[in-house]
């Protein structure tokens, strides 16, 4: 897996415009929550091979699963409106709730991160996740809808690629 594919997959899986729409926090708070999320993803990615061994899952099978999950996520997001902000803690505590959890640390992102780490290496995964998380506060609110549609469409295409790559692999 190339670094470019790793970045594209994690950015579209994360869908920064949709995450931005869910958050009203200040950029510093979002970045702090993003750093926490990145730390968790790096831990998961670093343990990727061990996780697969422990669960008796091969890398190609994980690739197929990631493809199926992300395809479903992309199609669902295309069909749904942008999410609205919910309640969370005030001030810097907001970096934990809602930014880190439940908005940024999402199961489909974690699954994709593990797969990218196993296939493309921890470095590619870390870089891709950092880009994906770092983009959240940079997305202008007025473009969230259109950028979200672009990301979801690209996500579906990449998910199909993951499925094919996973199915047809020794």
């Amino acid at each position: 897996m190339s670094v470019l594919l790793a970045v594209l997959l994690l950015v579209t899986a994360h869908n920064p415009p949709r995450r931005r729409a869910e958050l009203t926090n200040r950029p510093q708070v979002i970045l702090a929550g993003g750093a926490l999320t990145l730390a968790v993803l790096v831990i998961l990615g670093g343990a990727g091979d061990s996780i697969l061994d422990a669960l008796d899952i091969s890398a190609p099978t994980l690739r197929v699963a990631v493809g199926l999950v992300l395809a479903a996520r992309g199609l669902l997001d295309l069909a749904r409106r942008l999410p609205v902000p919910g309640d969370g803690l005030d001030g810097m505590k907001g970096a934990i709730v809602p930014v880190f959890f439940p908005v940024l640390l999402r199961p489909e992102l974690a699954l994709a991160a593990v797969s990218v780490a196993v296939d493309g290496g921890l470095g590619a995964m870390t870089f891709g996740a950092a880009v994906a998380l770092g983009l959240v506060p940079a997305v202008p609110r007025r473009y969230c809808r259109v950028l979200s549609v672009v990301a979801s469409t690209l996500l579906v295409a990449l998910a199909v690629d993951r499925i094919i790559d996973g199915v047809f692999a020794l």
Binding site: D56, I57, T61, L62, A65, V69, P107
Partner: peptide, 13 residues
């Protein structure tokens, strides 16, 4: 999510 994925997609080999 985790239970669903494990049961339906990521069954152990």
């Amino acid at each position: 999510f985790l239970v669903g994925v494990r049961l339906l997609i990521l069954q152990p080999e």
